[in-house]
């Protein structure tokens, strides 16, 4: 069983909610990333999203974009991240999702990449610039190799679109808490409460909420009506600006969820 599915199964049994932190791999370097992944696991992360840097991250805000610039400078690429995963799997079985963009995958070769990623122990894939309509080949490869494909539902998504996305997704569905990019400010929750409810009616899969969750209070609010909460920019910022305070911040997020 895929590690992500196992995590949600465990949480469902215990009534808990998934805490899914995001960090940019290679920011500031790959050695630190290894330490931070282990630290996130230790602090209670259920699943970890690893950003694999790309030069043109159109779905990300400035915080993650600048982190990606630093990571590229540090020499981190998709290829480098696969050897990282092989190392990590000797030390940890925490579920790992790669979040990257389509061009690095295309350049690597879709089929080869999925095969190598599965062998290295990657559990899930988020490629925000690849809509499900264009992802047929990748979805097939991933599912054949036991990797979950996770697609994003936006507050503007129609019921019809939510069906397409739910059908293409495995593991969980990523619900974007607002229209926009990662790290933006939150919109009033009632705006998406109803919409999220419709999504839950359409699918039996877990739904995790991300984008714009910047503190434990946000995380607590979101956790109330989802199966998991994804925190990205706020953690990336904390690690960059105040690495010493990061552990405390992450623990508080965990407690809130």
């Amino acid at each position: 069983m895929n590690r992500i599915d196992r995590a949600f199964k465990r949480l469902r049994a215990s009534g808990g909610k998934a805490f899914i932190p995001y960090i940019m791999a290679g920011d500031p370097n790959i050695e630190t990333t290894m330490e931070r992944v282990l630290m996130l696991e230790e602090c209670g992360a259920d699943i970890i999203e690893l950003g694999v840097p790309f030069s043109d991250p159109v779905a990300d805000g400035p915080t993650i974009q600048r982190a990606a610039e630093r990571a590229i400078k540090a020499g981190v690429s998709l290829k480098r991240m696969l050897s990282f995963m092989t190392e990590l799997r000797k030390r940890s079985q925490v579920p790992i999702i790669f979040m990257t963009y389509y061009n690095p995958v295309f350049k690597y070769g879709e089929e080869n990449f999925i095969e190598d990623a599965a062998a290295a122990g990657v559990d899930g894939m988020i490629i925000p610039d690849l809509p499900p309509e264009e992802a047929g080949g990748l979805i097939k490869e991933c599912h054949a190799k036991g990797i979950n494909t996770i697609f994003l539902v936006a507050p503007t998504s129609t019921a019809e679109r939510m069906k397409v996305i739910a059908f293409a997704s495995r593991g969980f569905i990523y619900y974007v808490s607002m229209t926009g990019i990662t790290g933006s400010k939150l919109s009033p929750e009632e705006q998406f409460r109803g919409h999220l409810g419709r999504l839950k009616e359409l699918t039996g899969r877990p739904v995790a909420i991300g984008f714009g969750i910047s503190n434990p209070d946000d995380a607590r609010n979101m956790a109330a009506f989802a199966d998991g909460v994804i925190v990205g920019s706020a953690i990336v910022r904390k690690f960059h600006e105040d690495p010493g305070g990061a552990r405390e911040f992450i623990k508080k997020l965990r407690e809130a969820i």
């Binding site: 840097p53 790309f54 043109d56 690429s77 998709l78 061009n103 690095p104 350049k107 690597y108």
Partner: peptide, 19 residues
Amino acid sequence: IGVLQGCKTYLLQDEDGNV
């Protein structure tokens, strides 16, 4: 050939697919 900003076309990119 690469995929950037919503289309597949010729692209100046490095071996990792960064533009």
